[in-house]
Amino acid sequence: MPGKTYVQATINGEHTDFLCEPRQSLLEVLRDVIGLTGTKEGCNDGNCGACTIILDGRIVTPCLVLAVEAEGKEMTTIEGIANGSTLHPIQQSFLENAALQCGICTPGFIVATKALLDENPNPTEYEIRFWLANNLCRCTGYDKIIRAVQDAATTMQEAKA
């Protein structure tokens, strides 16, 4: 049985290297090897979106990415969203709108929202709902999440103006 593979990548702006087995998912390595446990494991088959990260500019579910595929790639996890101890406006907005209860889905929603607002700073409710359709939440009923995204978009637009 062959050994582990050496992988180099950029995670949240920092050069990172790790050893992994080719069968290990990127999710498993982020959590169990690198220790970035903010990324949550839900379904482990791409349905729930709890593990959403940004990989080379696009949101993906790292449960469906092999860690060896991350060689040379850039990624942002939930740990890369806040600026030090200052919450990102999206995080602040999720708090203020009570857009979470148990919190397991929240990192995935926040990362997915970050990617949405980077690409489309002023999305319609319809666009928000479809963009976030790959993120499941069993607590909130989604409406508070949608309002949090809308509020965050407004705050970020005003900050830019």
Binding site: G49, T61, A115, F130
Partner: peptide, 9 residues
């Protein structure tokens, strides 16, 4: 096909 995350891959 799938959602945004799936369409990314």
């Amino acid at each position: 096909i799938g959602g945004t995350q799936i369409q990314g891959r």
